[in-house]
């Protein structure tokens, strides 16, 4: 049952990205081009998503169990550290180079774009590289429990 709902959530998420025009890297780059002619659409996508999200997460925070009786797994980490900022800067550079972030790239792959597929494969390699680095790091320094990461 949980698997079915996760599928529906992924499907709805993907449909939202398509409706919002966010699967098109040209539109993302239009938003990131504040020095040129700026397309503010992505900002409105965020506003629309957060308007709904605020209500949902306010409800979620008050519960310990989900509607299916599963544990509510919300991130508990609060500190802003170099890992968070450094990782975000690296992500932002990649985002600005291609106009793809993880969700839209996967949807573009689903739509049959070869360039989307190449990006997703490279992204998986990058995530794999992180997993290797992180495994080594957590073996030497177990300061941050894995469950505390969002």
């Amino acid at each position: 049952m949980a698997t079915l709902f996760a599928f529906v959530a992924g499907l709805v998420f993907g449909l939202g990205l398509i409706i919002a025009g966010m699967v098109n890297p040209a539109k993302i780059l239009g938003f990131l081009d504040i020095a040129g002619t700026w397309d503010p659409s992505l900002a409105l996508v965020m506003v629309g998503a957060i308007a709904v999200g605020l209500v949902a997460f306010a409800l979620a925070r008050r519960r310990t169990m989900s509607a299916l009786g599963l544990p509510m797994q919300l991130p508990s980490q609060r500190t802003v550290d170099a890992r968070l900022i450094g990782g975000s800067l690296v992500f932002g550079i990649g985002w600005g180079l291609a106009g793809f972030c993880p969700g839209p790239a996967i949807v573009a792959l689903g739509a049959g774009y070869a360039k989307g597929a190449v990006f997703v494969v490279a992204m998986l390699l990058g995530m794999g590289a992180f997993a290797l680095i992180d495994r080594h790091r957590t073996r030497t320094d177990s300061a941050i429990p894995d469950a505390n990461r969002p």
């Binding site: 949980a2 709902f5 996760a6 529906v8 959530a9 992924g10 709805v12 998420f13 449909l15 939202g16 990205l17 398509i18 409706i19 919002a20 025009g21 966010m22 659409s41 992505l42 409105l44 996508v45 965020m46 506003v47 629309g48 998503a49 957060i50 308007a51 709904v52 999200g53 209500v55 949902a56 997460f57 409800l59 979620a60 169990m65 989900s66 509607a67 299916l68 599963l70 544990p71 509510m72 797994q73 919300l74 991130p75 972030c101 993880p102 969700g103 996967i106 969002p150």
Partner: peptide, 26 residues
């Protein structure tokens, strides 16, 4: 279309957290 698509994304995130208890972070 941006705001409506955004709201649909928010709905998907709402579904995943309220039903599955998980954050929709791709």
């Amino acid at each position: 279309s941006a705001a409506i698509g955004g709201a649909v994304i928010g709905l998907a995130a709402a579904l995943l957290v309220l039903v599955n208890g998980r954050v929709a972070g791709i």
